[in-house]
Write a protein that binds this DNA or RNA. Structure first.
Lengths: 150, 150
DNA sequence: CTAATATCAGGACAACTGATATAT
DNA sequence: CATATATCAGTTTTCCTGATATTA
């Protein structure tokens, strides 16, 4: 039912918001089910994503970013280092710091996990939506991007 | 390994899937930022949602649902009971079981948290999308629901 | 007597706080 | 000396495994 009455209706918008809230939760859960998270703690996962997004960083700066104590970050990083996911190098300019960065193996692992989630989504879209419906969805995605812009 | 479907338009669909994957993550994060989760563990939150969705249940059935041991569920529930969020009553038919249910205070708390998240979404939709665009989004939501159906 | 429910006891792990060595 | 980084200890929390009482 298309209701294109120009009223900035609160009831209709509220119903749409409820639908979207439930929908986003379920989609996120489905995506999460796909990839192999590996048995990392949430903090460890957050550190890897932070390093990927922000580049190499020290233990203390990572601790600040994640709202953890440096001691906790140290042990989290020790586990990641033992798993071959991050690598530490001494800072040539400041002997106190150790600069952590992702290993190539970790980048590949992150890429593979993302690809698995994206593949599921891609396959599901292809299987369940007709090409015109896919166009409709693509148009709506452009609208949704506006909702998360600053 | 990137697309096992035999249909044409894989490249466009793949780009759409990537956009959606990033978009869903960001929307979920924005929603999460809104509500006050309270300082509950993920397991405790899961138990409350399970009780809300499935109605009263025993400790063991909750443990099975959440993939925990009954002992761990017992202590999680003890904390929730101390916080006044759940309430236990003996099963009249089976003296071994204790049936847990949500308190009214807990239902109100869940409702308030959800309302906060939904309000943000509702306000953002109203502020950033024109009424016709809202109609377009509502139509796309119906398409998206098809993606998460079993 | 066997099976299911709930709990008590102790261990493992990831986070915390406090204290310490090293470098700026 | 004052500050910052990283780590070494011990504690708390949340899960686990193992054992026990009660009821079906």
């Amino acid at each position: 039912m298309s209701n294109s009455s120009g009223r900035p209706g609160s009831a209709r918008t509220s119903a749409l918001a409820e639908d979207m809230r439930l929908l986003i939760g379920k989609l996120k859960r489905r995506l999460r089910e796909q990839g192999d998270h590996g048995d990392l703690t949430p903090s460890q996962t957050a550190v890897l994503l932070r390093l990927e997004k922000g580049g190499p960083a020290t233990v203390s700066s990572l601790a600040r970013s994640e709202g953890m104590r440096p001691q906790s970050m140290s042990s989290a990083i020790a586990a990641l280092e033992a798993a071959g996911l991050v690598r530490g190098a001494p800072d040539p300019d400041d002997g106190r710091q150790t600069i952590m960065s992702l290993t190539d193996a970790c980048r590949e692992r992150i890429r593979a996990g993302r690809a698995a989630r994206q593949d599921w989504l891609s396959r599901t879209i292809t299987a369940r939506l007709s090409p015109p419906e896919q166009d409709e969805l693509a148009a709506a995605v452009r609208l949704l991007k506006r909702l998360i812009d600053d």
